[in-house]
Design a protein around this nucleic acid. Structure first.
Lengths: 225, 225
DNA sequence: GAATTATTTTAAGACAATTTTAAGACGCTT
DNA sequence: AAGCGTCTTAAAATTGTCTTAAAATAATTC
């Protein structure tokens, strides 16, 4: 399961260094280059960890952390900072950070500190499914497209879950009806079509972005492009 | 609830400094002055946190940590160290430590780092819970909206506490019934609805101020807006 | 310890959202 | 162009939630 990390950092050099290094460790990375953008992304999507620079244009790193913590008290936050006064460290930790790394830092140390955060949370981690820009968190029962929360009904949710769990495989109509609707004998209904239709609409998977394709005469397939 | 901390440190000066300072913060302290004693005490009693010196007579701090981690993967461990090579830091974290403080350290920073560990483990530790304009003090059993004191019954209070402690997460009806009503088998009752209704009324969370949202077919979610 | 008050639970009708049905439009295949 | 399968839409059926009020239970008061 890919871990999603948001990096909020204004210096392009450091940002690219981090992104590249962490992607090589197969973390999924998104970035923001100032406090406002960072806070927005932090709040509008779900993350496994936040990496925030202390000095940022716009809202300061500490304020981003504090305001993020008001909403989410779980997701670990690590600060990157050039400062190293004890007072700043304490303020950072008081703002709700879980850890704190001084620049210049070794990439290996950063990696270890990230792993420490994940290690202590591993038991709690919820399973996430993704399909292109779509991400669904089964446990908290929420679905996002990019950073936008999409509201699905129960059946829409069940159908999407089934399709994504079988990503890359063709799902026959009979299989879908059995698994999602729990109907095990004859079927002559158009429900599936109706729900596929509304999924495509709500998830904005129109025309070109054909993540859920129709296999004529058989069923549907969810696939990465 | 008193937090129990075990300090493993061979220098008597530092040991007393730590013991005294932490006892003033009303932590319950026990100590060990070498690695063998430390490991034995660590394993033979239950602790909320371990504070271990890196350099110890007998078994090294790192080995104490590693062997403790083999048995207990939950209890947070913080290292105290005079060394500050990156390599040592990484080894400490790899041995299963949760954090790492360099000597000489400020006592305030140590305190903050201890609190960080407790905070991330015990969402229960804070007696003050908030949701938008709502503030509840668990200990004094009072709830405010802005500065206005709101009188809630026991069950209303319990339900609100449960929802806010799980802020941002969907609370399924079955989970609510289990946690708040302590009913562990089948449930077909409308109590939850009734209480949600009266909470929304008393807290004046009508229409727009949708801090407690309904997730149809699943349950409810308390979220900041 | 009986009476009063407050809290919790049950129940039922009103209401709102979801799910299903159905039917015509559309598009692919032969 | 005919035929079949899929898409799209709207209305009907169903299910879940809201809101009340009354009944049952627990806690206070006299």
């Amino acid at each position: 399961m890919a871990m999603r990390i948001l990096i909020v950092e204004d210096e392009p050099g450091i940002l690219n260094f981090l992104r590249q290094g962490l992607e090589e460790e197969s973390y999924v990375i998104d970035t923001a280059s100032d406090g406002n953008e960072g806070l927005e992304k932090a709040l509008n999507s779900s993350w496994d960890l936040l990496l925030i620079d202390w000095m940022l244009p716009g809202i300061s790193g500490m304020d981003v952390c504090r305001r993020f913590r008001a909403v989410d008290s779980q997701t670990p936050v690590i600060f990157l900072t050039a400062r190293d006064t004890v007072q700043d460290t304490i303020m950072g930790l008081k703002a709700g950070a879980n850890d704190y790394i001084r620049k210049p830092f070794s990439f290996d140390e950063l990696l270890e500190r990230i792993r420490v955060q994940f290690r202590s949370r591993e038991s709690t981690s919820s399973d996430q499914l993704t399909l292109g820009p779509i991400r669904m968190d089964i446990h908290s029962h929420q679905v996002y497209r990019q950073n936008e929360l999409i509201s699905l009904t129960q059946k829409e949710f069940d159908l999407l879950e089934y399709l994504i769990r079988n990503k890359g495989k063709v799902c026959r109509r009979t299989s879908i009806i059995e698994s999602v609707w729990d109907i095990h004998f004859e079927y002559n209904t158009g429900v599936i079509d109706v729900y596929i239709n509304s999924l495509r609409k709500k998830l904005k998977l129109e025309t070109e972005e054909d993540y859920i394709q129709t296999i004529r005469g058989v069923g549907y397939i969810a696939r990465e492009l």
